[in-house]
Amino acid sequence: MPTIDLKSPTTRVAIVAVAVAIVAVLVAAGAVVAAFMALSRVETPSNAAPQPAATGGGVDGASSAAPPPVDGPTEEPSPVQPVPDFELSYEKVSLKIPASRWCSGSVDIDIDGPAIDSGSADFTRVRCAGPDEFEFGEVSVSQDATPKIGPAECMEKLDLAPMREGAQLPIPSLHVGDALCILTNRETAIGLGLPQRIALLEVKGFDDDGTIAVVMTAWNVPD
C-alpha cells in the first residue's frame, strides 16, 4: 500500500484545496438554511410583525376623522302639553227622568244638582206634536261616548263628534248602555256663580211608564 508524503508540496496543496472545499460546502449549507428560515418567516402569518392600522384614506395619509359639526339652528323637542286637572263634582248619581206630560209641560234636567224639575234646566225631556225626545239648548252634547270614559275623553268627543247646538235626541233611539257627554254653557255657569261642568250620562233602563233610569257623573272644568 503506497504511503502519503505529508511533507511533499503537492500533498500540502491537495490538503489545503480539500479544506477550502469543505469550508465552502459548509458556508453554502449555512446560506441555504438561512434562506429557508427567512422564507418560513415570510410565509407564516403568525410570525409576521403587526402592521399599524391605516389612519387616512387620502394619498398623503391624512386623517379620515369626521368633520366637526356645522353650527346652525337645532330642532327643539315639542313641549309636553299639560293634562287639564278636572275636579270630580259628583259620581254615579242615579236619577229617574219621568215621561213628559205631553204639551202641558216638560221635564227639566239640571246637571249641576243633579236634579229633576228643580227650577233650573240644562236640557229637557219634551213630548208634544213630535216624538218623545231630549232637547239640548245651550249645552254641548256628543253621543259618541261610552260609560267607561273620563272627562278628558268626553271633551275630545265634544270636539270630534258634537251634536249641533240646540239638538234634539229622540228617546226611542236610546238603549241601555248608551252614554252621552254633556258640557254646560260656560257663560251661563259664570252668571249663576257655578263652575262649568262636563257630565257623563249613562242610560241604565226604561220603566213601563216611560221613565228612564240614568246614572250621572260630573267634573268641574278647569279655568
Results as ranks from 00 to 15, higher is better:
70 V>E: 15
165 E>G: 12
5 D>C: 10
145 A>G: 04
52 P>S: 08
186 R>Y: 15
165 E>A: 11
35 A>P: 01
223 D>R: 10
136 F>Y: 13
192 L>P: 03
193 G>N: 05
146 T>Y: 02
59 V>K: 14
140 S>A: 14
214 V>T: 15
41 R>A: 13
218 A>W: 07
216 M>S: 03
161 A>N: 12
161 A>Q: 10
95 L>G: 00
158 L>Y: 14
9 P>G: 05
131 P>A: 07
160 L>S: 11
211 T>M: 00
150 G>N: 01
87 E>W: 14
71 D>L: 12
211 T>G: 00
57 G>R: 04
48 A>C: 05
87 E>F: 09
159 D>T: 05
75 E>N: 03
111 I>V: 15
134 F>T: 00
61 G>H: 07
178 D>A: 04
90 Y>T: 06
9 P>L: 09
95 L>N: 00
25 V>Q: 05
150 G>A: 02
34 A>L: 00
194 L>M: 09
104 S>G: 12
135 E>N: 07
192 L>G: 10
170 P>Y: 08
70 V>N: 06
104 S>W: 11
51 Q>L: 14
172 P>L: 05
74 T>V: 12
209 D>V: 07
24 A>Q: 03
182 I>C: 05
14 A>N: 10
38 A>G: 01
51 Q>W: 07
157 K>D: 14
194 L>I: 11
73 P>S: 03
118 S>K: 04
219 W>V: 01
166 G>S: 11
78 S>C: 04
169 L>F: 02
160 L>Q: 11
219 W>Q: 11
93 V>N: 11
176 V>L: 03
46 S>G: 07
25 V>S: 03
181 C>L: 10
43 E>S: 15
73 P>E: 08
112 D>L: 10
47 N>P: 12
10 T>W: 15
105 G>E: 09
117 D>A: 00
111 I>N: 09
139 V>A: 09
124 T>Y: 02
208 D>H: 15
35 A>W: 11
185 N>G: 08
118 S>V: 00
50 P>D: 06
118 S>R: 01
48 A>T: 01
16 V>I: 13
181 C>Q: 01
160 L>T: 15
75 E>F: 08
16 V>D: 07
150 G>D: 02
9 P>Q: 07
14 A>F: 08
168 Q>Y: 09
168 Q>K: 15
115 A>T: 00
196 Q>L: 06
101 R>C: 03
59 V>I: 14
28 A>R: 10
89 S>V: 13
7 K>P: 14
175 H>W: 07
171 I>Y: 07
34 A>C: 01
222 P>G: 02
57 G>D: 15
126 V>P: 11
30 G>M: 10
189 A>L: 09
160 L>P: 09
146 T>N: 04
16 V>E: 00
219 W>T: 06
64 S>L: 08
160 L>V: 15
80 V>D: 10
183 L>N: 07
187 E>H: 13
170 P>D: 07
54 A>Y: 08
91 E>P: 12
1 M>C: 11
60 D>R: 12
187 E>I: 13
